[in-house]
């Protein structure tokens, strides 16, 4: 094991974490502002990936695909908000879980009907193929671009929420929805916008990840569940918490899968070591979540009561 290999795995973890952040940001925003738990967020991730792969396949242009993926996810998000979610804001969490579980069934089967049962593949754009030398190790340019894109979106989101009038309204909506409605803000339109924004971020993550894995029905749910872990760790409703949680989960998961089998190999025979290492590595982020729950039951960055 060399420092170069370790560094490469760390970057992979960083990239995975930033993609998780794109998913978690929308999820935590929707919960913070509307008080809604949305299981169908993973379906929006899938929609982004499918529309990106299909549009890129048709036009031969990755960037058009990326735009199509984000637009499709945002449109699907807005449509879902207007038709279904709006009726759920005042319901209890059980109703929200069930309705959004039903949406997963509908959206997954709908995607299967629309795009067929087989996985789609998305090529890395020519501009971003190849590797760059980062001193210690050559690293795929596309994955580096994912890191840059993730950081860029995080910065943009921070500016949007912290520095614009729209961001003030979103934060006000988190605190007191009646009051800002009374002050003349169109709260319905604001909710639709926040939901579509979260959906677009999920769609963007799906489209970006689509070039490094196969695009298939059901790809959203494993990411969704990890995003839940992220926002439980970070504190539900906190964007900053989502960022810290996503990076922790991404790096620990990736490094655990890489390092644990090697650690076990020090005192177990090789065949058992890889099995035990892999099994423990797959549980690592959940153990981290349990640990943080013991120390900070409301997450690392708890949002006001």
């Amino acid at each position: 094991m060399t420092a170069a290999l370790l560094f490469e795995q760390f970057l992979n973890g960083l990239q995975f974490g930033l993609m998780l952040f794109l998913m978690s940001a929308g999820l935590t925003l929707v919960f913070g502002v509307m008080g809604l738990i949305n299981l169908a967020h993973g379906s929006l991730f899938m929609i982004g990936a499918f529309f990106c792969a299909a549009a890129a396949g048709l036009t031969g242009n990755f960037w058009l695909g990326l735009a199509a993926g984000m637009a499709a996810a945002a449109a699907a998000g807005a449509l879902i908000e207007v038709t279904v979610m709006r009726r759920l804001y005042t319901r209890d969490h059980l109703d929200q879980v069930l309705a959004t579980f039903a949406l997963i069934l509908i959206l997954s089967e709908g995607t299967k009907i629309l795009f067929g049962p087989f996985p789609l593949y998305l090529d890395v754009p020519p501009l971003l193929t190849g590797t760059v030398n980062l001193g210690l190790t050559p690293y795929p340019l596309y994955r580096l671009a994912l890191i840059v894109a993730g950081l860029g979106v995080a910065l943009g989101l921070w500016l949007l929420i912290g520095r614009t009038r729209l961001g003030i309204r979103i934060r006000a909506g988190e605190n007191d929805r009646e009051m800002i409605a009374a002050l003349g803000v169109n709260i319905r339109a604001l909710y639709t916008f926040v939901f579509a924004l979260g959906a677009a971020l999920a769609g963007l993550a799906g489209a970006l990840v689509g070039a490094v894995q196969s695009v298939q029905v059901g790809m959203g749910e494993p990411v969704l569940i990890l995003a839940f872990v992220v926002i439980v760790i970070g504190g539900i409703g906190s964007i900053r918490g989502a960022m810290v949680g996503a990076l922790l989960v991404g790096v620990i998961d990736t490094m655990g899968r890489f390092l644990l089998p090697q650690v076990f190999a020090l005192f177990l025979d090789p065949s058992k070591a890889s099995g035990a290492g892999a099994a423990l590595a797959s549980m690592l982020v959940y153990l981290l979540m349990a640990l943080i729950l013991v120390i900070r039951p409301k997450g690392l960055f708890p949002v006001h009561a």
């Binding site: 069930l98 309705a99 039903a102 949406l103 997963i104 069934l105 509908i106 997954s108 089967e109 009907i113």
Partner: peptide
Amino acid sequence: RLWLGLVLLLTV
């Protein structure tokens, strides 16, 4: 499953 989802959604 599409129809199950629709029935479930309408029930909720």
